[in-house]
Amino acid sequence: MLTGILVPTSGHIKVNGFVPHKEREKFVQGIGVVFGQRSQLWWDIGVIESFRLLRKVYGVGENDFKRLLDELVETLSLGELLNRPVRKLSLGQRMRCELAAALLHNPSILFLDEPTIGLDIVVKTEIREFLKRINRERGTTILLTTHDLQDIEALCSRVIMLDDGRIIYDGGLEELKTRWGKGREVVFTFGDAVRADRLAALTDGMDVKWSVGDAFTATVWIPLEINVSEVLSRVVGTMEISDIKIIETNTEEIVREIYRTGSAQTPEETLAGGGPSGGGSAGTAAGTSADREPSDDRPADDRPSDKAEAGASADSSRPTARAEATKP
């Protein structure tokens, strides 16, 4: 809906000064779109041919095109891919080309629909770095939907979570963490075998929870009110420790928690089971079924354009299902 593909059934929508579905051809000049799951490049022709075609489609001048292309080829290291047909690219290579294709006309807003889906960790990191860079250097507003919460952690300054067409969270990521995060975990590996009651005795009077793994490892859960160093000092002073790991609250956990508590309508078994029972059609930024997403008509032009943003998840029961699926 935000990209002008869908026509809303009710409400108002204005992006970048345009009403997307009404002034589509003018509006899309200023945006770039990448769908993680489908290619916008032409399957049978070389990458560079696709780029040239896009240059004509967007009416980009020859010189601007060359300059932008050189820059993109360099930052995304596309050099050797340019002359290959798209069908011979791997997913990661293709995604880098897709990003370049979406940016060739220097759009002021870039929409990304699950840009890192199915990519390996190296390419994911590269793409995140690249997105941060164009956000910083060109001031491109980036709006992305993702089920990969690491994307959000790496990129986003504003997070919007949708559930069943309603916004259930809209704010910064840090705020999200502090408001919803309930504590941290510390994993100890001890030099000698330990017993649970011994550990519990150490932190007597503190509201922490111990769980013992095997004889040598134990995990303690510390709520936000208690200082981690306080717990550590009690343990470290008396026990012989070979390793300590501090685990911050996982954003995934937080999001799961929000979806569980924040939306009364979502049945819990859907969340836990991970089956997409409610959501038939999948989500783009605005959700694809026009009648189900009335609340997404928020004006986009009141956002500072130098901020990266994220709609965390677009569809009702699918987000947590996806989040779970990404964990092996």
């Binding site: 990209t3 002008g4 593909i5 589509r24 051809e25 003018k26 899309v28 000049q29 945006i31 779109v33 769908f35 489908r38 290619s39 916008q40 896009l54 489609v57 967007y58 009416g59 929409f111 783009t284």
Partner: peptide, 14 residues
């Protein structure tokens, strides 16, 4: 049916 028409709709062409 496969939705690539959506991709085409994000371009300033008919």
């Amino acid at each position: 049916r496969d939705g690539s028409v959506a991709v085409q709709m994000t371009r300033p062409i008919n």
